[in-house]
Write a protein that binds this DNA or RNA. Structure first.
Lengths: 334, 334
DNA sequence: TTGTATGCGTTATCAA
DNA sequence: TTGATAACGCATACAA
């Protein structure tokens, strides 16, 4: 049986409405009474009942996050950051790993103040009839045109990377990315590459597009090892993800290739380089902190009932560090 | 503004208490009235308000899951299964990725019916004063002696595996596991190995204990490749995790080793083999379905207010498939 | 500065 | 078979 404000009131010898005010730090309560009440609440281990509060306030100070694919590691850092940001505004986040429809329904019953949806990229179920009184924000994929969406411009990211390499003289540039599933997010990166390379189809650059069988470290390793042992004309690599890059670096180390002297590398990446790699990577992408920031802001905005831009696209930035070098002449002749 | 039973009552021309009964499918309401009400509720997109319901019922039909380290992939399959199992009993699960203390506090305010904690293995904060009106169940690590815990017997798992290999004639058995962090869960596996091998310390078997630098596929790959290229006396490998095993298999494939003819392998594993490996692995561990089953049951039991065994240890099973073979004489001589 | 009364949406008890 | 009403825990407008 949990303790209520009435229990505190009894202990403190005041009315329970006074307790309610005191706990909310209202100026309508004298300091001594307030401190006394606070102390008793503390002692009794009082926890305000969210149900009761949200019933009267019509607000739960809670954001529901729909996360149907827990297995995927990538968004987990993002979630953590969003959680922290929202917490600073005294919002709690709660996750549901149910299917999107049922999760949204749950959150509606719980009267959360907003819902953030991490879409499943696999199946775009635009047909599903989502009913929600609560405002919804999508991240990643536009699944439902009725609700605003935030996404990052992956295509431009890879395009930027490619152009940069071209600017510093590279022509033989390889793109290593996962094209094994029909993940539109991964495909988009390839398109950015094709655009920068000024070709229509992937088949126009058979030697420069190196598909992997997944997004794991080892996939990058295999692709790079394969590429670098048999083909020496490549002077730069663009990697579609951080994990692939780690694999690529393992391959170059094994082959005793020096970065950036023998090979330039740019990695698509959102995550600030926490792990100490052998080298400071040149990366391209939208920093995850910026994504988290923008999502949190937008969430708070739609909670206020204000409307937001329907489709928010976050633009990537190139972060030039040590893993790229201009193409020197002696390199070209090798 | 969401629709309430009063809105439905008005539409249907009945009292709202009748609506309440009808929606709960009470026998106290005539069929025609019931169907009529149901229909209107449907049309209006009615969603029952959990706050109001749990306020009066003192029950939210919700289980809170504390999951402070979203990044870790391993438990995610488990959570998914538990979620499904509980859903079948009409319970909803909600996850929190906050720190354990704050997550538990949140769930208390939400008046969930039970809390499941996936402990952080890194820091055992037994000292933290956790206040909870709601019953708690720990999984993995016993962090707080006041609450019941479910765990799997990793030590026995590896011991079983080792003994089995010994039974079929192997003597030169290697254990590949992650000992890089001070993760007690991983350490426990090593102890099982040492017990079966009948030695006190890891230093007694320098050539047979192969530590990796992590639990990733590539870590297993490196360890195995290193081991198998320089040391040929090993006839069997016990792998501390499924991912390590995948790496090990890549190494053996590269080295053209035949499993089980040239080398026997047993993998620690909870997950039913979904991925089609080249070979049907002999595995040891507690099947994840069994873990999920037991956790769900226990959760439901403590929700009923009944007490459960304080420390539940799930015992592993050996699942002998194709990756192990008795040690033949010609092998021994090689 | 404190206390009283009302209502949030729902279930449950009792009366009709 | 239906309807009126109290109660859940809390916040708040209003009275004291």
């Amino acid at each position: 049986m949990s303790v209520t404000i009435k229990d505190i009131a009894k202990q403190a010898g005041v009315s329970y409405s006074t307790v309610s005010k005191a706990l909310r730090d209202s100026p309508l309560v004298k300091k001594p009474t307030k401190t006394k009440i606070m102390k008793i609440a503390e002692e009794l281990g009082y926890q305000p009942n969210v149900a009761a509060r949200s019933l009267v306030q019509k607000k739960s100070f809670t954001v529901g996050v729909v996360w149907p694919s827990v297995e995927r590691v990538a968004p987990s850092i993002l979630i953590t950051q969003i959680n922290d940001l929202l917490e600073a505004h005294s919002y709690t986040t709660l996750l549901s790993i149910n299917k999107i429809e049922s999760a949204i329904s749950t959150f509606n019953r719980f009267q959360v103040d907003a819902i953030l949806v991490f879409g499943e990229n696999e199946n775009d179920l635009t047909n599903s009839k989502i009913q929600s009184t609560v405002p919804i924000l999508y991240y990643g994929v536009q699944e439902d045109l009725r609700f605003p969406t935030i996404d990052v411009n992956r295509r431009l990211a890879i395009k930027l990377a490619t152009k940069y390499l071209q600017d510093i003289g590279h022509k033989q540039i390889a793109f290593i990315g996962d094209l094994s599933n029909f993940d539109p997010l991964q495909k988009d990166k390839l398109i950015g590459f094709l655009e920068a390379m000024n070709v229509e189809h992937a088949s126009d650059l058979p030697d420069m597009i190196i598909p992997t069988n997944g997004l794991e470290v080892h996939d990058g390793y295999l692709a790079a090892k394969n590429l670098l042992t048999k083909q020496s004309s490549i002077t730069a690599i663009i990697s579609g993800s951080y994990d692939l890059t780690r694999g690529i670096l393992r391959a170059t180390t094994e082959l005793s290739l020096k970065i950036p002297e023998d090979l330039s590398i740019i990695s698509y990446d959102n995550i600030p380089q926490s792990e100490n790699l052998e080298i400071q990577l040149t990366t391209v992408g939208v920093p995850i902190t910026r994504i988290a920031q923008r999502i949190s802001e937008t969430l708070l905005t739609i909670i206020e009932g204000e409307t937001v831009q329907h489709s928010i696209i976050l633009e990537p930035e190139l972060n030039t560090l040590d893993s790229c070098a201009p193409l020197s002449n002696n390199h070209e002749s090798s």
